[in-house]
């Protein structure tokens, strides 16, 4: 019984991490940059849904996708594009700067008090076990997004162009691919995913503050690395692995205080044993 509950909790927590990790991994895989502001786009999405929720939840979801995509485009155009070709470290620092900028802006415009909604999806009773409807929706959506992204990347022209940009940006450009356009598309997809993740996380936590996306963002980044950063199914696997670890730790009072430490320790172990993550591609280094 407890094992079943732990598994359900793991799916519930892992589902949200998987959703966030998918966005991380998309942007990293194609633009080859760690978008540390991803967690804060989630925060933007979370605030949007909370603000629009009293009007209509559906409008709220649409508004958060539109708003996050807009923020994503603005950030990409103004902060990341001028640094195309700069050292990866400069881009990384810029991403952290953007993250802080978004958090501070949210604090200026919306205040520092967390805002919340009260909303209950209800539970489905299967035998003696009850599962939250939200958990089921989160998991189904993550799987659907994962499948859709995989198909999109494999079978559409834009998707294949993405793979080309990912593998060799210079060669892709020579083949007539508009690299800037492809990276822009990647950011649009990444931001839309962040918006959806933000919506799910808000429905789960029912509260949003200015650092709302920071910790889930970092954990999802760890999930993406554990699964193999750049790999779409890997993000899903990594997210669920972290979710299960968190659920198991939460059920054992002695381990519970060390949940975060254990999660990141597992990240380190995975990096030591299998640096490319569970499903990451091995890249041959040309000498």
């Amino acid at each position: 019984m407890e094992i079943i509950m732990t598994i359900i909790n793991g799916l519930s927590i892992g589902g949200t991490y998987a959703m966030i990790a998918l966005g991380y991994t998309m942007v990293y895989g194609i633009a080859k940059m760690l978008n540390f502001a991803h967690g804060d786009i989630i925060m933007v999405g979370g605030y949007t849904i909370v603000l629009f929720f009293p009007i209509s939840p559906i409008i709220g979801v649409i508004a958060s996708v539109i708003f996050c995509v807009t923020v994503g485009i603005v950030v990409e155009k103004s902060a990341y594009k001028p640094l195309r070709g700069a050292s990866p470290l400069a881009v990384l620092i810029t991403a952290i700067g953007v993250s802080k900028l978004l958090q501070s802006s949210a604090q200026i415009f919306l205040g520092s008090e967390p805002r919340g909604i009260t909303f209950n999806f209800g539970n489905i009773q299967i035998g003696s076990v009850s599962i939250s409807v939200l958990t089921l929706i989160t998991i189904l959506c993550s799987v659907a997004v994962m499948v859709a992204l995989t198909l999109f990347v494999k079978y559409t022209k834009t998707g294949r162009a993405m793979i080309a940009v990912s593998e060799d940006r210079g060669a892709a450009q020579l083949m007539g691919i508009n690299v800037n356009f492809i990276i822009m598309i990647t950011f649009i997809i990444g931001s839309a995913l962040a918006a959806i993740a933000g919506v799910f996380l808000v429905f789960k936590v029912q509260d949003v503050g200015t650092t709302f996306g920071a910790m889930p963002g970092i954990k999802a980044f760890a999930a993406a690395v554990i699964g193999g950063i750049g790999s779409i199914p890997g993000a899903m696997v990594g997210g669920l692995v972290l979710g299960f670890i968190e659920a198991i730790c939460g059920m054992v009072p002695a381990l519970s205080p060390y949940t975060d430490a254990i999660e990141f320790a597992i990240l380190i172990i995975v990096l030591l044993v299998k640096p490319t993550g569970f499903l990451g591609k091995k890249r041959r280094e040309k000498v």
């Binding site: 909790n9 936590v205 939460g250 059920m251 009072p253 519970s256 060390y258």
Partner: peptide, 18 residues
Amino acid sequence: VEASFTGEASQFDSQITL
């Protein structure tokens, strides 16, 4: 029964179960 959390952990599935 003791249940705990750290940081700003805000998904309380396990704690609620306990």
